[in-house]
């Protein structure tokens, strides 16, 4: 479903601030894979997701989604294949627009936008049912501006928007990091539900090792712009946080960042 072949990216090349962010990432995802990605700060986790989403062009290598080479496509064209949820709850939604308007925009992801009315009565009915599924009471606030919602509600809405039109890959970039633990758990539960229900291929970056173990069928660890550890199936289920910490020190020869240890 997703293929990364020797993907490389250096930021600010040729300057004193040059940073090799991705140093040859190879990754192959099967349809239905739900991969959690962990690693220290600057390991290249979010950078990998941004490379897939096309936030900028990669220096070399190839990115294929369902067999289609998207390496050269701009961000808004790749959006057709991708559902995305960001770390900052403000990023995924348009604050000054209504909940239903945000959903209507997401429902047209990858479509040619026309001068037809931006939201139909039929859609409103659908959105009400979908929002009710989230169990956050949003179905009664469809005409409220998204700016009035809490961070957790906005992330749940962004998740719904990302999956409204079935994406080939769902990219979750630390999407619970800015939330309190209780809300984070709820948003993770919604993520699991939507991924299972739509049978999605998904990638989730997280700093929380327990979440990384508990969710998905596959786990990869990144360090210094490379994938250094990749487990799936039964082997992944047996993993413990201690295993991961040990794996990390042994592979990178480096101590984990405080942030990764504390979460």
């Amino acid at each position: 479903m997703l293929e990364l072949i020797d993907v490389k990216k250096t930021f600010n090349p040729g300057t004193i601030n040059a940073k090799k962010a991705l140093c040859g990432v190879d990754l192959h995802l099967n349809p239905g894979d739900f991969v959690t990605i962990i690693g220290g700060n600057g390991a290249g986790k979010s950078t990998t997701l941004n490379a897939i989403a096309g936030v900028w062009k990669i220096d070399s290598g190839k990115i294929k989604i369902d067999g289609i080479d998207v390496s050269k496509l701009p961000e808004h064209k790749r959006a057709k294949y991708l559902g995305r949820v960001f770390q900052d709850p403000m990023t995924g939604t348009a604050a000054t627009m209504e909940i239903q308007e945000n959903l209507a925009i997401a429902a047209r992801r990858g479509d040619h936008r026309t001068l037809r009315w931006g939201i139909t009565a039929k859609e409103r009915k659908e959105y009400r049912e979908l929002l009710a599924m989230l169990d956050l009471g949003l179905e009664d606030r469809m005409t409220s501006k998204v700016g009035l919602l809490s961070g957790g509600q906005r992330q749940a809405l962004t998740l719904l928007m990302a999956t409204l039109k079935q994406p080939k890959i769902l990219l979750l970039d630390e999407h619970t990091a800015a939330l309190d633990p209780k809300t984070a758990a709820k948003v993770l539960e919604i993520s699991d539900m939507l991924i299972a229900e739509n049978n999605l291929t998904a990638m989730m970056v997280t700093h929380n090792m327990r979440d990384a173990i508990a969710h998905g069928n596959r786990l990869i660890m990144m360090n210094a712009g490379k994938v250094i550890f990749d487990v799936s199936g039964e082997e992944k289920k047996k993993l413990t946080v201690d295993d991961l910490i040990q794996k990390f020190s042994q592979n990178s020869g480096d101590m984990l960042s405080d942030r990764a240890l504390l979460s």
């Binding site: 808004h76 939604t93 348009a94 925009i105 997401a106 990858g110």
Partner: peptide
């Protein structure tokens, strides 16, 4: 309102 969101939604 939000350009990043727009690009993620294919705009």
């Amino acid at each position: 309102t939000n350009e990043k969101m727009c690009r993620a939604q294919g705009i």
